[in-house]
Design a protein around this nucleic acid. Structure first.
Length: 281
DNA sequence: GCCCAGGAGTGTG
DNA sequence: CACACTCATGGG
């Protein structure tokens, strides 16, 4: 089916290509193709609206896209709140269309465990590999992200064959520890309790717990700190120290929308390294 | 070939 | 709580 959504501001490239989610790619004709749940989706921006082509699936495709791209977030409120920070205010217009995504909780958990100590192309490759190995075929050459029950019986050597390396043991451990009922319980926790619970899992530390809280459970106050964010905080704010300290400082600076600030800073620091272009300085 | 990546686990001071 | 060390591997 095809339909149109009001979606402004929205920059699909910044949103889907900046490493918060790993199953989207830009097609030769410029559209973005990916998977939400058990259906393939194609997206194309057209002025203030978003053109969607969605394969049949269980739930309502409109709701799925609206939730995934967080199209109900009031970007005016969020950006005006973050604009009270001088550094962010300076470049906010250039990331106006960057949205956080709201991934499936389980998928985000496994994805960011795989993301440890790997670069984005490799992460995408690992995820594509476990999907084709353990997921269900949903289109030509496209597979659903395998659920806990589909990964529970995966052998370590099968997982390693997907290029996971030492992460294979983490995935195996988590798949045996977590089921959809557990995910349901985690959904009801507040952010601080959620991240502590997530950190109990094998292969989940501070950073992964914050990524999963933000991109999977939609806790907008979460502020994941990787090497890029560390650089940004030092370069722009002169902040240094442990994860715990930086996290406290960032929460103080950015408050309830720290997750959006984090993604803006991340994109900025990456593009600064890539081609010298800079939005915040 | 070299460097680095959306880090975590473990052990120690 | 903060730091040092180890792990392990493919992409640019």
């Amino acid at each position: 089916m095809r339909f149109r959504l009001e979606a402004s501001p929205l920059d699909l490239g910044q949103t889907l290509g900046c490493g918060q989610t790993f199953r989207w790619s830009q097609l030769p004709d410029g559209r973005w193709g990916g998977v939400i749940g058990v259906r393939t989706i194609e997206l194309k921006s057209d002025g203030d609206s978003l053109l969607v082509r969605a394969a049949p699936g269980g739930t309502d495709a409109r709701d799925a896209v609206i939730e995934y791209l967080r199209l109900r977030d009031d970007m005016t409120t969020i950006q005006s709140a973050l604009g009270s920070d001088r550094r962010l205010a300076r470049g906010l217009t250039r990331v106006r269309g960057l949205r956080l995504v709201k991934m499936d909780e389980w998928e985000s958990l496994i994805s960011f465990v795989l993301a440890t100590y790997a670069n984005i192309p490799r992460i995408s490759k690992m995820i594509a590999a476990i999907a084709s190995e353990f997921g269900r075929g949903i289109a030509d050459g496209v597979y659903s992200f395998p659920g806990p029950e589909e990964l529970r019986d995966a052998r370590p050597d099968e997982l390693r064959a997907c290029g996971l390396g030492y992460r294979a043991e983490y995935v195996r451990s988590i798949a045996r520890e977590v089921d959809m009922a557990a995910i349901g319980r985690l959904k009801r926790l507040g952010y601080e309790d959620l991240r502590e619970e997530l950190k109990e899992l094998d292969g989940v530390g501070d950073k992964v717990a914050d990524c999963v809280s933000l991109f999977g459970f939609g806790r907008l106050e979460a502020f994941p700190i990787d090497v890029w964010i560390e650089r940004a905080l030092r370069r722009l704010y002169g902040l240094e120290g442990s994860y715990a300290r930086l996290r406290r400082d960032a929460t103080g600076l950015f408050g309830e929308y720290a997750g959006y600030a984090q993604e803006y800073l991340y994109l900025n620091e990456r593009s600064l390294a890539a081609d010298g272009s800079c939005m915040f300085s």
